[in-house]
Design a protein around this nucleic acid. Structure first.
Length: 505
RNA sequence: UCCGGAGUAGCUCAGUCGGUAGAGCAGGCGGCUGUUAACCGCCGGGUCGGGGGUUCAAGUCCCUUCUCCGGAGCCA
């Protein structure tokens, strides 16, 4: 709701229930409680303690640890194994003495080997670690051949991409994927706490114009000898779905239909773009989060987006401190300060027209000209958020010519209710809009985009039957991860990146 | 896709004026030390991205092609 209307709904007090109160009565809250009751952990045959837990113990304590050797140092009298099991950033130093039956084997143990260690956790007499594990027995579970490519030195990210199946055993990628997991959970927590429903929109679609880029074709036809119609064209009626089908480029249209019944929903799933994009910010397969909300206007949309970004950054700062400290130290100095600044900042809001005006008057010379009707270039976006505004900023109300057909036409006749969230360092993080809910206007804008309304009959039905104002936005999950970790290439925040010419692993 | 840069040992790189390739790390062997990017000695390791050309001679110069990286576009 607009601020103006928010305070005078029928004169009733406008105390909005805290989203956090909903959690206790929400479905997810009850499910979590039920899982705690019904699934007590069962002891494993050979139980182990995760290193994350071991490091919280007060020594002395007897534990079994299982993990992979990060580095090994040895001499006649003693051998040190640094063992990491991925449960946390830190590794555990295992001290092996010559009394161990297989001491000679352990001395030659190479980086990457898997071990199971039983021993006593004791305060470490040396600098470098508060505690260490004095081994009573070390079982070599899986030896790593000497050709194990990871060395105890810094590798380039380019090289590590070529061994994406092993790179998770490095400090950097262990941290990246712990943060990725934590943020994926935070996405769900954020929406579930607000009573949003998680919708699985289809991966395969026959909409050949979801409107967001080149699509991958899905077919079971023999591409070398497809069935033909009498005129020689490929006969798609013979294909699996009896028509051309593709991988989805967006869950938005499906999400909109669900918002017209569940009111507030979100999607969070894989998305595919067959663009020949060769940049550090694009992948052919990525994960996108798309909330869609009935009864929201553009301001409500931006409010939600702002709360969402702040909640996710806060989740990372509070839940992944050790990993973020590493990124701050080794990958992107200033990272934590920047994230904290965003969390506490009041995001700006500025009209596209005013943004263009201020960019034009800034005196800064850009490679591309700025004028009303121009797409803001990356250089414009960054100058706007970093210098002119100095904090995250929503740019709203773009010229209709440069935005998609489903965005709501404003009364001025030349702009649409679109918003882009720009953040320092990377530029656009979120794109969203209020949707065009008026049937006649939507049919017109579809035609103006050169599309056929007949192909959108089910989408248009939502405008035919109980249409309501609604809005939503899209956030590329990997873009967010790049922002949170400081990693500068999207290929390094997704387990097995798919990019042009690249579908290994 | 366009523009720019780069491909040399497993990795990171050096290689002068065109004269048949080096270092550190990793690996193997040995030594030494409560070590921690451990240290010391020795050893092995190369179709210099591929193809073509110029030249007595090409890692080096020219053409072409592939791949990677960065910038732009498309976008999330």
């Amino acid at each position: 709701m607009q601020p103006a209307t928010r305070t005078k709904v029928l004169g009733t007090p406008t105390r909005v229930p805290s989203p956090w109160r909903e959690r206790k009565t929400s479905a997810i809250g009850k499910v979590v409680a039920a899982m705690r009751r019904c699934y007590p952990p069962r002891p494993m045959q050979s139980a182990r303690t995760k290193i994350a837990s071991v490091l919280r113990l007060v020594p002395p304590a007897e534990v079994r640890v299982k993990g992979w050797v990060r580095t090994a140092r040895d001499s006649k009298q003693v051998a040190f194994l640094e063992v990491n099991d991925g449960s946390c950033f830190a590794s555990l130093q295992v001290v092996c003495s010559p009394e161990l039956a297989n001491f000679d084997e352990l001395r030659g143990l190479s980086t990457g080997s898997a071990v199971s260690v039983v021993g006593e956790l004791v305060p470490s007499p040396a600098q470098g670690q508060p505690v260490e594990l004095r081994a009573r027995s070390v079982e070599i579970v899986g030896r790593a051949e000497s050709s194990f490519p990871l060395q105890k030195k810094r590798h380039s990210f380019e090289f590590l991409r070529e061994i994406a199946h092993l790179r998770v055993r490095t400090n950097t990628f262990g941290a990246v994927f712990r943060v990725r997991s934590a943020l994926a959970q935070a996405v769900h927590s954020f929406f579930q706490a607000r009573g949003f429903f998680y919708v699985h929109t289809p991966i395969i679609t026959a909409s050949d114009a979801e409107g967001a880029g080149e699509m991958f074709r899905v077919t079971t036809l023999d591409v070398g000898a497809p069935p033909r119609t009498p005129t020689g064209a490929v006969d798609w009626r013979e294909d699996f779905f009896s028509k051309p089908s593709y991988l989805t480029v967006s869950g938005q249209l499906g999400g909109e239909t669900f918002a017209m019944g569940l009111s507030e929903i979100y999607t969070f799933g894989p998305t595919f773009r067959a663009e020949n994009s060769n940049t550090p910010r694009h992948a052919a397969e990525f994960w996108m989060i798309e909330p869609e909300m009935a009864w929201y206007d553009l301001d409500d949309d931006a409010d939600l987006a702002e709360a969402f970004v702040k909640a996710l950054l806060r989740a990372a700062l509070e839940g992944c401190g050790e990993d973020l400290a590493f990124f701050n130290d080794r990958v992107d100095r200033g990272l934590i300060a920047r994230l904290e600044a965003v969390v506490s900042a009041d995001f700006g809001r500025i009209d596209y027209a005013e943004a263009v005006d201020r960019l034009a008057k800034s005196g800064k010379s850009f490679e591309f000209p700025v004028f009303f009707g121009a797409n803001l270039q990356a250089e414009h976006e960054r100058y706007l958020t970093e210098t002119l505004i100095g904090r995250p900023v929503f740019v709203v109300n773009y010229p209709k010519e440069i935005k998609a057909f489903y965005m709501r036409r404003n009364d001025d006749g030349r702009t649409v209710a679109a918003m882009d969230l720009l953040v320092p360092k990377i530029g656009e993080l979120i794109g969203g809009s209020q949707r065009e809910e008026r049937l006649d206007v939507l049919e017109r804008t579809i035609r103006e985009s050169g599309l056929d309304p007949a192909g959108y009959s089910w989408y248009l039905d939502t405008r035919r039957f109980g249409t309501v104002p609604h809005a939503g936005f899209g956030l590329g999950f990997e873009r967010l991860l790049m922002y949170v970790t400081g990693m500068e290439n999207i290929r390094d925040v997704i387990p097995f990146p798919r990019t042009p010419r690249n579908c290994g692993f």
